[in-house]
Amino acid sequence: MNSKRPVNLDLSTIKFPLPALTSIAHRITGVILFIGLIFAFWALDTSLSSPQGFEAVSDAIAHNFLVKLITWGLLSALAFHFVAGIKHLLMDADIGVTLEGGIKKAQITVVISAVLVILAGVWVW
């Protein structure tokens, strides 16, 4: 190895660029959504099983704090995964595939999903 190469061992100075963060968040939200399917299928199953089941689910979503939190969390993960997925499709269509375009699209993804996360919170509460 060439010993004259600059070496940076101070990891705190190394930062992921925003597009890398949205990419990893897309993966993390995907895993969360998969685990969240347990909750989603339970809610769908119970709400369709009987009028009592429907009341139980809507009552839990309306009044149970933990259920509200899970619902908001899953809706937030879904919102981000959805928006980041649209970003992927734009890249497939060769739209904004430059360094500046990539950063801009990552910024737009964060802003739109942040708005959707807040709206989801308003919806649940």
């Binding site: 709400s47 369709l48 009987s50 009028p51 429907f54 009341e55 809507s58």
Partner: peptide, 11 residues
């Protein structure tokens, strides 16, 4: 104001 009849009717 979704109720059980409408919801189960959909599915």
């Amino acid at each position: 104001n979704l109720d059980y009849a409408t919801w189960s009717g959909l599915f």
